[in-house]
Amino acid sequence: MFWNLPLIAVVALILIALAIIVFKKNLIKVFLGIVILESAVNLFLITLGYREGGIAPIYTNAPQATMVLPTPQALTLTSIVIGVATSALLLSFAIVIWKKYGSIDIDRIRRLRE
């Protein structure tokens, strides 16, 4: 039961990140929330692939034991790249909005409504 701690942590992190996204008014803060959310999901994927007492799935001279599952690591690599691409694009949006609106407060970025 105690060993489920990483999964519990994943849930907690997802909730904290969602709270940051929903309750914070500053765009950059929201993006930080998205970064944390991405990291939490990555942690979830990695956690799925862990085997107790396993070693990294790389053959070296080191003594061999059971290896942890490689697929989640591959997926997480892809997901990390997606994360950095996403945050770069989001930040560039925020900068342009700051230039044009003079504010990155979410309550004031609402010229489009109705």
Binding site: L90, F93, I97, Y101, I109, R111, L112
Partner: peptide, 15 residues
């Protein structure tokens, strides 16, 4: 960019 309005729309969509 449309004076930032298009970026606002893109931001909402993308988030």
């Amino acid at each position: 960019i449309d004076g930032g309005v298009a970026v606002e729309a893109a931001l909402k969509y993308f988030v």
